[in-house]
């Protein structure tokens, strides 16, 4: 019954997806305004997967036996696909490194808030201070400090994620039922043991939604950082395309984003659901 329902749900989702694609196509036929000659505001699928895709080979820096367009080579689908792969890898790499760094630091600092009165005093004020800084206002500063190529973006994402994970961790630790802490202490758990075997697993269900939340913020942060000065990555392609009003390229990259964010959400929620085998089903959704 449930398998059947799930099966049907999938068909419905696919149907919705196709209808949306169709609406877009109809829109491209009906609304023919152009941003500049040869650049429609709404590009139909037949344009997106031929002309637009091909044009992405402009961003291929060359190498691996495939010459770059800037070196005088003609556009090719191979260069376009390579270009997508390389720029996506840059963006995803920055995102992953930033999330790992920020997530780890946020978790550690969040745990420090409850470790002892000393660590609490040490961490509390500086973090509260950092939290109030608007994220986007910090982009130029981070790029001047850490460079525009890689570290700047990574640090920026780490900062954005770290603040969220910190707040989530503090909150999750506060919500652990005291009975588990009492029980562990009564059974003789040391402080380290308590954190490793009780606090970390106990906050995991709550941290799962924090991670998913920060993943969205992470995608936003890495793009924001790339808009403002990176020389590669999907954000760079969007900004470059904007300068020449290449709306079709921007739309194609946006589609890539939808794909990547969906896959990353799906992956993380699948992985964490598996790690939550012990939890009641409601917490694994």
């Amino acid at each position: 019954m449930t398998a059947l329902t799930r099966h049907r749900d999938r068909w419905i989702s696919l149907g919705v997806f196709l209808v949306l694609a169709l609406i877009w196509q109809v829109l491209s036929v009906v609304y023919t305004a152009e941003a500049q000659p040869g650049e429609p505001m709404v590009a139909g699928w037949q344009v997106l997967f031929t002309h637009t895709l091909l044009s992405l080979s402009d961003y291929w820096p060359g190498g691996w036996g495939v010459p770059a367009v800037s070196e005088g080579a003609p556009r090719s689908y191979l260069a376009a696909v390579l270009s997508i792969v390389v720029h996506s890898a840059d963006t995803i790499g920055r995102l992953a490194a930033g999330m790992a760094l920020g997530g780890f630091a946020g978790l550690l600092l969040g745990l420090a808030m409850s470790w002892s009165r000393w660590t609490r005093r040490l961490v509390d004020l500086p973090i509260q201070f950092l939290r109030t800084l608007p994220l986007l206002a910090m982009v130029p500063l981070f790029q001047l400090w850490f460079g525009t190529d890689y570290m700047g973006e990574v640090m920026f994402v780490a900062y954005g994620i770290g603040v969220i994970v910190f707040a989530g961790t503090v909150n999750a630790v506060r919500n652990i039922p005291p009975i588990y802490l009492d029980n562990a202490r009564a059974l003789g758990a040391s402080q380290t043991m308590l954190y490793r075997s009780v606090i970390l697993p106990a906050i995991f269900p709550a941290m799962r939604s924090v991670i998913l939340l920060s993943l969205g913020a992470g995608w936003g942060a890495v793009l924001g950082a790339e808009y403002l000065g990176a020389q590669s990555g999907l954000g760079y392609i969007i900004v470059y395309a904007q300068q020449f009003a290449f709306l079709d390229r921007m739309f194609l990259v946006a589609l890539l984003f939808i794909l990547y964010t969906s896959v990353s959400y799906w992956g993380i929620s699948r992985l964490s659901a598996r790690m939550l085998a012990w939890a009641p089903p409601a917490q694994r959704q």
């Binding site: 009492d182 029980n183 562990a184 059974l187 009780v198 697993p201």
Partner: peptide, 22 residues
């Protein structure tokens, strides 16, 4: 304890072992 104190993230045997592990 009066309330359930068994750690839900450990299997039954790991719960019983917990104090010894500590």
């Amino acid at each position: 304890f009066q309330k359930d104190s068994v750690f839900p993230w450990m299997r039954v045997i790991d719960n019983v072992e917990y104090g010894l592990k500590c």
